[in-house]
Simulated assay, not measured.
Amino acid sequence: MDDATLRAHLRRFGFSEKEVDTYLTLLAHGEAKASTIADVAGVSKRYVYSVSEALADRGFVEVNDHVVPTRIRARPPETVVNQLVTDAEAIKPALEARYTRAEPATDQFEVVKSRETVLKRIQGLIADSESELTLSIPIGRLSDVADELRAAVDRGVLVTLLITETDEPPADCCGVASITRIWGEPMPAMVTADDRVGLVAPAEMLTSTHSDTQAIVFSHPQLGPVIVGSFFGNYWPVGTEVAVTEPTSLPLTETNFRIAVVEATLWCRTETPLAARIEGRWTETNEPVDLECRIVGVTQGLIEPANSQFPIEASLTIDADGETYTVGGEGAFIEDIEAEQVTLREA
């Protein structure tokens, strides 16, 4: 687990950023004085004492104030995790007793009239994305979402970004996306996160001081793929590619097929021979598939030069024991295999 993911998990347990810094510093030392932790974590000694007491109450550390100076010791991670599991199991019966099962909420749509609100919604969608994000945004608004985009890339989200109303790559576009294109014309601001939530806003809503237009924020499992298809089918091909990320280190396991295809493309272009494990089903018989194979071809339209017949086409061609098969993602029917999980490694 990388550092960013670990920090995110700790925040889910109620840690603030400074508490994360303090706790990770203490873990690295095992046991230390408050002044040592304060210097390394970049916080005050008084704050370390306060945080340590809070962490001790939650079972993460032990504070020995019977010695001078006070020593703070991290409890063994196995002990901490076991205690968390025990606590969670202890409250489970009470939670179940209070739980009332409800039908899922109906699909939601929100009409937004304010430019500031539109930007906040876009920032929120980027921040909440888990695996894949598509975004078109005018050059003048890139700085408003750049930090959220870089954070998404850092946590492994596939970010495809189309920057509009510019014919020159922006100076600050490094690291904001996995694949970046530019286009000199205006277009609607479109964002989708994980194929299920998103926003569509007229171009002038983000560029004009006064606009009577409105944006639509949606949460709809059928609409998300439609917006993604429109983004890649109608707008992505007209853009000019200006930046592409480096491939992620191998081995790599992905349940998002589009990410697997992008990574395979990037590695194949380094002339690295790829092996793979494909788990899914045969599209003709619906029988399960679990194949060890070699990647012998990639078809895609996201990265130049594209070799797909249409922009959203994405597939792998594999060789398994001398037999050649094609692999597609969720809903595949033309390909031989519908993949549910792909593991890539160097052959």
Rank of each mutant, 00 (worst) to 15 (best):
F218K: 06
E168W: 04
P305H: 12
A28R: 15
V238L: 13
R75Q: 10
E31H: 09
T324N: 10
Y235Q: 10
R71P: 04
K45F: 00
V200P: 01
Q123R: 15
P104Y: 01
R7N: 11
D321S: 14
P170Y: 09
G184I: 06
R277N: 13
V262P: 00
D65A: 14
I137Y: 02
L95F: 09
Q300R: 08
L95P: 01
A189V: 15
S50Y: 08
A105Y: 08
D2K: 08
S249C: 06
T326M: 11
L84Q: 13
V68G: 01
V111D: 04
M205Y: 00
E103C: 07
T317S: 11
G301Q: 05
E78A: 15
I337D: 06
T207A: 02
P77N: 10
E304P: 03
T86A: 15
I91N: 10
A151V: 07
H220C: 14
V200C: 01
E292V: 06
E263S: 07
F13A: 12
L142A: 12
P251N: 08
L223P: 02
L223V: 10
W267P: 02
E323D: 15
I318F: 01
V342A: 02
T285R: 07
A54Q: 12
K33T: 12
C268W: 05
R277W: 02
G184D: 13
D319T: 06
S249R: 10
A152C: 06
G42P: 04
A8V: 01
V217G: 06
A151Q: 13
D87P: 03
K113N: 08
W236V: 04
R115K: 12
V81S: 14
T100P: 00
E338M: 10
V81I: 15
I91V: 15
L24P: 03
T299A: 11
V342I: 13
P288W: 01
